[in-house]
């Protein structure tokens, strides 16, 4: 990699250096959480977490473990910055983001510290582009306080089965209602649109249901507009874990396999829309 040798001497200045042979492994997963411009980057020795939020009701996190990167050097325990995600994605695709096998854009991402821009070195076919993206004052991500001990209901489904449902969802419905129950209908997605209502029922013993652990019947509504961006993550993923806690908060965890077969995670948290009387 010409990139690695070139910039080696400067490395001691950087708080964070991360290299990828294939920039698409980063850009793809970032696309799954692109619904607002501002993204909070939090790097720890374990890897990189990118957070995007909407209306204080929705939060999406993408986790890229340190192992995914060919090089991941971090000077501090925690390095945080905020950049415009759309700009970052444009930079990552600066060579056109080709999907031709064997052709890939190599990336080296460096950040010096507070007040410095995020510097990207991108190389494809011997051409190097250097992008500097101004960083913004980092905001604190909302803590949804979604704790696994409070989880009442959990189901893991193969994404394939949910993709179909999400692609058919009646978008004239303002909400998506999710019912999880230890008895019938087990796992139900409902919409209430202009022309009537629709239900999608997944039995707990379906081939598509990898795990079904429900303790109590819960019915909660979530704003369709908030959940819509999560379909991007669904499209990329192979499995999804749907969890609700005692307050009705929804957690959707997507297992995403990248081009090289490595596994990353995308997570969405969503607040319930309103209380629904439980039957």
């Amino acid at each position: 990699m010409p990139l690695s040798t070139q910039s080696q001497p400067d490395d001691e200045h950087y708080a964070l250096v991360a290299s990828l042979d294939n920039a698409r492994n980063l850009s793809n997963i970032l696309k799954a959480i692109t619904f607002k411009d501002h993204a909070i980057f939090t790097a720890t020795p374990n890897g990189l977490k990118v957070t995007v939020e909407d209306s204080k009701c929705l939060q999406a996190n993408a986790f890229i473990q340190a192992e995914i990167f060919q090089e991941f050097t971090i000077k501090e325990d925690l390095v945080g910055f905020q950049v415009n995600l759309t700009v970052l994605l444009d930079c990552l695709n600066i060579f056109g983001g080709t999907t031709v096998p064997g052709v890939s854009t190599a990336l080296r991402m460096c950040y010096r510290g507070y007040g410095y821009p995020l510097t990207l070195f991108l190389e494809e076919g011997g051409v190097v582009t250097v992008c500097k993206i101004n960083t913004e004052e980092p905001e604190d991500p909302i803590d949804f306080d979604f704790c696994s001990t409070n989880v009442t209901n959990k189901a893991i489904l193969l994404s394939e089965s949910l993709k179909e449902a999400f692609s058919e969802l009646d978008m004239t419905s303002e909400v998506l209602q999710i019912t999880m129950s230890p008895s019938q209908p087990y796992f139900r997605l409902s919409t209430f649109g202009n022309s009537g209502n629709a239900h999608y029922d997944y039995p707990k013993d379906s081939d598509m249901m990898e795990l079904f652990r429900c303790t109590k019947t819960q019915t909660h509504r979530y704003k369709m507009s908030l959940l819509k961006p999560s379909t991007k993550a669904l499209a990329l993923s192979c499995k999804v874990s749907v969890r609700t806690d005692s307050r009705g908060f929804l957690s959707l965890q997507y297992l995403v396999r990248n081009d090289d077969g490595q596994i990353c995670f995308v997570e969405y948290y969503c607040c319930p829309d309103e209380e629904v009387e439980e039957e």
Binding site: S161, G196, N197, A198, D201, P203, S206
Partner: peptide, 9 residues
């Protein structure tokens, strides 16, 4: 896979 789609119009 046992998926049941119900549309009430």
């Amino acid at each position: 896979h046992g998926l049941l789609k119900t549309h009430n119009l």
